[in-house]
Amino acid sequence: MPDSGHSLVVGGLNVAYGESKVLFDVDFTVDPHQIVACVGRNGVGKTTLLRSIAGFLKPLSGTVTVDGVNLLGQRPYDVARMGVKYVPQDKKVFSDLTVRENLELGSYATKDYNWDRVLEYFPKLKELMHRKAGFLSGGERQMLMIGRATLGSPKVMLIDEPTEGLAPSIVTHLKYVFSELSKHAALVIVEQNLPLVCSISNKVYAMRDGRIVAEIPGGASLKPADCEPYL
């Protein structure tokens, strides 16, 4: 498997919450420097998929590897240290801590104390350094969360609904950041915003009822209408 060329490989993943099964034999692959989008209605298991890869859920069966290294059964913090960072959708920063402290925690976890790239992507954070993260706007929180996750140069970033509820100008900025990020890492983005999805993704997986029902190649030919049926 190490030389498959894929960065992240998920095979035959089955996940259940107690008795009720949520994911059924999910297979997918992400190549290095790719942006892969995952679309589908609410409740089809997109977040569950990301959380299972990140180690927060224990799958019933399946495989998850990054650069050929098995991730399954690892604690979430080990998964993060192995270079797979998960950015949850709740936009919950540590509100009692300042922006600087939030970033410090990211550095502490990864031993990467170089914030240049974070501040290059999100210059606005420089002015906010000493503000309590609880007082940030939704967009600023999202910047902090993504910035925090880029510390330690992860190989794969799993980003859940990054643009939900954000102003269009910030969405445009995030789009730029994602394309910059993909120079260093592979991205898996769960997203409902189809124009954004179509403009940045190399590949789109559509999910329905816990299964991947379509794999749509990305690129210039991809139109929002191609993904529409799955929403």
Binding site: F56, Y77, A80, P88, L105, A109
Partner: peptide, 8 residues
């Protein structure tokens, strides 16, 4: 969970 997600 967020702390864990950072890799701590």
């Amino acid at each position: 969970e967020h702390v864990e997600g950072l890799g701590i």
